[in-house]
Amino acid sequence: MNISRRQILILLPAAAVAWKSVLAGTPEASPNYKMTDHWWSMLIDIPKCIGCGNCVRACQTENDVPDGFFRTWVERYHVTDYHMENPEVISPDGGKEGFPVAVADEGKYFFVPKMCNHCTDSPCTQVCPVGATFTGPDGVVLIDPKYCLGCAYCVQACPYGCRYIHPEKKVADKCTLCYHRITKGLTTACCEACPTGARQLIDLKNPKDPIHEFLKTHDVQVLKPQMATGAKAFYNGLDGSVR
């Protein structure tokens, strides 16, 4: 089944919040938001991704991500029968400007959007020496830029390459799951900009979230399950060759 826009509307009653208060930017402007009522994550539907790069651009715009670094990026895999273990992967500038045209051959192609998995047992927060990165009560892994030392231990600990040191701020940086948006009833910038619905913000604590039905009826996988990080970015139709 597909998650329609209508359902998203039902799902996020807070979306009705007046625009002015959304823009006001203060957390007090979203008084209906209660952290413990949510457990956020993301569904990525690989068969729907067309590699347009909209999500990467939207993320960079929304979050002022510096050039050359990525809170989300898109990879294009090219897998041939005899090289399942050694796929050919590209991600030119994180897929920000899309991908070169691929010519059909004996291999198969597909796109894999990547982002922070907001792991439940995240190795990055485990290693932070000072408590500058943490999993919030609503399941979002965040970084406190005023407390981070910039030691980069978390960058080393992330198995997915989702973190980087911000070249100007000199602190660790990564996807916040658009925390400033989801707490105000909006969806993330990447989901908002995705033209095909390949990315869906999900709230596992919301019983009305269509994700529950989706997970029941689809073969869903997370990246690198052997890392046992409790990754919460769920991938539908994930090929075995994806790293």
Binding site: P27, T61, E62, T176
Partner: peptide, 23 residues
């Protein structure tokens, strides 16, 4: 809430929104 600065959650939530959202 845990071993971190709780106030940072509000600070992160206070970032400016740039995509208005289709609604």
């Amino acid at each position: 809430y845990g071993h971190y600065r709780a106030a940072s959650i509000g600070e992160i939530a206070a970032h400016q929104v740039k995509y208005a959202g289709h609604e």
